[in-house]
C-alpha cells in the first residue's frame, strides 16, 4: 500500500511521450519488472531503460478531440487507469467523472461528452492484473553533506526554461503559410511565449521546441496565414 509518492508503481500512465525524458519528472523511476507503462501517443516511442516492462501506446488525445473537441486528458487517463488495474468498474468511473465535472460547474452536455470519452478510453485497453508483483528496495540511503554556498537556493543560470521543451504540450501546431504572410510581425508581437522570432526579411519563425500551441498567433494574424494542424508526434 503506497500513498502520496508511489515509489514502485505497478502502472504508470504518461500523458505525453516528452515527459518520459524529463529530468524533473522521471516517470519510469521505480518501475519494476512486469509493471505496465501506458503512453498517450499515436506512435511507439523507444524506451531507453526498458527492462521488462509492458508498454502500451494509445492516442487518447485523439479521442478527447473527437468527443470533447479539446485536449483535456483527465477523464481519459482516469479511465485508462481504472481499466488497466481492473480495480474500478465502468459505473464507478462514470459516476466519478460526472460528479467531479459537476463540481467544476460544467454544463450537462459537456459532462455527457466527457462520459462518452471516458467510456471509449475504458474500452480501448484490457485489464492487466499485477497481483503479487514483487518489489525490491532500489535505493541506498545516504547522508547529505554540507555544500557551502551551493546550498543556498539562488538560481544563477538565467533564461534556462527553454531546456524544458514545452512544445510537448502542443496538440495543435501553428503553420505559417509563407505565400500569405506579409511579414507584418503581429504574430511575433502577440506570442505570449517568446516562441516567434523574425528573420532578416521580417518573416516569422516558430520555435516548435517551446511552442505550446496556444494559437494566439493564428487568431491575431490579419492575413489568416497561420493554420493549425493536429500535432502528429512530438520528437
Amino acid at each position: 500500500m503506497e500513498r502520496g509518492h508511489i515509489f514502485n508503481p505497478n502502472y504508470v500512465l504518461v500523458t505525453s511521450p516528452s515527459l518520459l525524458f524529463d529530468p524533473t519528472v522521471k516517470p519510469l523511476d521505480g518501475m519494476v519488472e512486469g509493471s505496465v507503462l501506458f503512453v498517450n501517443s499515436s506512435k511507439d516511442v523507444p524506451i531507453v531503460d526498458s527492462k521488462k516492462i509492458r508498454v502500451i501506446y494509445r492516442d487518447v488525445t485523439d479521442l478527447a478531440l473527437k468527443h470533447v473537441g479539446k485536449d483535456i486528458l483527465s477523464a481519459t487517463m482516469g479511465a485508462v487507469a481504472c481499466k488497466l488495474s481492473g480495480l474500478i468498474g465502468l459505473q464507478s468511473l462514470v459516476d466519478s467523472v460526472s460528479e467531479e465535472l459537476e463540481e467544476l460547474g460544467l454544463e450537462p452536455e459537456l459532462i455527457e461528452k466527457n462520459i462518452q470519452l471516458a467510456k471509449e478510453c475504458y474500452s480501448s485497453v484490457e485489464s492487466i492484473s499485477l497481483c503479487g508483483l514483487e518489489y525490491r528496495p532500489l535505493h541506498n540511503v545516504v547522508e547529505v553533506r554540507y555544500m557551502g554556498e551551493r546550498g543556498i537556493p539562488d538560481l544563477l543560470s538565467m533564461g534556462n526554461t527553454a531546456l524544458r521543451k514545452t512544445g510537448s504540450w502542443r496538440v495543435l501546431k501553428p503553420l505559417i503559410d509563407r505565400n500569405l504572410c506579409t511579414a507584418c510581425g503581429i504574430c511575433y508581437i502577440y506570442c505570449p511565449e517568446s516562441c516567434i522570432s523574425l528573420d532578416e526579411q521580417g518573416y516569422p519563425l516558430i520555435n516548435y521546441d517551446s511552442c505550446k500551441g496556444c494559437l494566439v498567433c493564428a487568431v491575431e494574424c490579419p492575413m489568416k496565414a497561420i493554420k493549425a494542424e493536429r500535432e502528429s508526434v512530438w520528437s
Partner: peptide, 24 residues
C-alpha cells in the same frame, strides 16, 4: 542576474536546502 526566493517544488530539493540551513 540572480533569481532568489524561487519555489522549490521538488521535495528532495526542499529537504536538501533545509538540511543545508541546519548545517550552516
Amino acid at each position: 542576474p540572480v533569481a532568489k526566493g524561487i519555489p522549490v517544488l521538488i521535495p528532495p530539493l526542499y529537504s536538501f536546502f533545509k538540511y543545508q540551513m541546519h548545517m550552516a
